[in-house]
Design a protein around this nucleic acid. Structure first.
Lengths: 199, 199
DNA sequence: TCAATTATTGACCGGCGGGACAATTAAAAA
DNA sequence: TTTTTAATTGTCCCGCCGGTCAATAATTGA
């Protein structure tokens, strides 16, 4: 029982260390030694818990996504109306602790590997699927069926685009600006919506 | 006279080869040897024309941007009304030859390096500035001044988001879908606009 | 306490990639 | 032609990084 716990703890520590190193070093610079050092361990231990660098960052991506996912779900749990659910999804995706340049850098680095790493592509696919399903479940009550698909794509594209910008031009794109941007889009696109006003 | 030409030609060939290798191999995999081989030359020649790998990909990014930029400008030149200018910018950014998964991969790889490479950051900044200036010059005639800024950000975020998606989920996001997405956004956001209908 | 399992380390290896360089070839200038 | 300059190649070196391994320390279970 204790032994399983230690391994679980180490693995989690290493996943998180990996993601944190990724924020500052990028995928190429995020070497096993740096990750280990950042977690206060030796390089050997990393490969003791993860078969390869690939696998390590696979789990790092899952972990990061999980944490974002939980934030959204927590908000969703408190939402009752479709409108509130929409708000929950969007605000969850722009919480201060996530929508930060360094975090965006890390995601960028992961995304850049997706085309060449099927495992990462799979995770990416899951992330998009969940986002889509969340959005659809709210939009279906706010728009004619035929339009939901398109609006879902627009919202995800907007979110991704804003994240990308936040990653590129460090600072200058605050959470508030991004949130206003999203709210404004919804205000114009879904007239029947009464959401907290955009600016 | 001839010598300057040869050097100019080689440099262009190498920049393009670099960008093409980037499409399939990513930044880490785009080794000097592969770029050289792809251009039909030897590794030495690459470092003869470019001081370092960094500089090579710097120029590759400039080249890729230039080509996109020219496409937009060509369309802009034929546009007369603000509405047409808007259309020109958007359609230029989704021409078939640019809006392809492999090209998106390459841009993704470059963007992922931006946070750690000041040179790339500078280029990125220029790209955004031009895009912004283009959009503003059209929007100013279509919207109250106060709204232009926000709409500009939304449009760029949408474009970036759609490109990102195209890069992540290879195929499945065609140029037509992306263009419709943009047109729909404009239709709702700029009511006074009469643009070719979105689907 | 003792055996067995697990955690952890550090040393080591093989490979590779960026970059330097000297040598060779081609071209241009004189 | 001769000389100088540029183009091009192949080789070599160094450092780094992922990954293996054997050895050691710690923990657990009996």
């Amino acid at each position: 029982m204790k032994l399983t716990k230690i391994s679980a703890i180490r693995r989690k520590e290493l996943r998180q260390a990996a993601f944190e190193v990724l924020q500052q070093e990028g995928m190429a610079g995020a070497t096993l030694e740096k990750v280990a050092a950042h977690a206060g361990a030796s390089k050997g231990i990393v490969l003791h818990y993860f078969r390869s660098k690939q696998e390590l960052f696979e789990h790092a991506m899952r972990e990061a996504n999980l944490s974002l996912s939980e934030a959204v779900n927590a908000r969703l749990k408190q939402a009752t109306t479709p409108c509130e659910r929409l708000e929950a999804i969007i605000e969850g995706n722009f919480e201060e602790r996530f929508f930060r340049p360094s975090i965006c850098h890390a995601w960028l680095s992961l995304c850049a590997e997706v085309p060449r790493e099927p495992q990462l592509a799979r995770i990416q696919k899951v992330i998009h699927a969940r986002m889509r399903s969340n959005l659809m479940s709210a939009l279906v009550h706010l728009l004619p069926r035929a339009e939901c698909e398109a609006v879902t794509l627009a919202i995800t594209a907007l979110i991704d685009g804003l994240w990308l910008r936040a990653g590129l031009q460090s600072e200058g794109l605050t959470r508030d600006i991004a949130l206003n941007q999203m709210r404004e889009y919804l205000k114009y696109r879904i007239p029947t919506l009464n959401i907290r006003a955009a600016r």
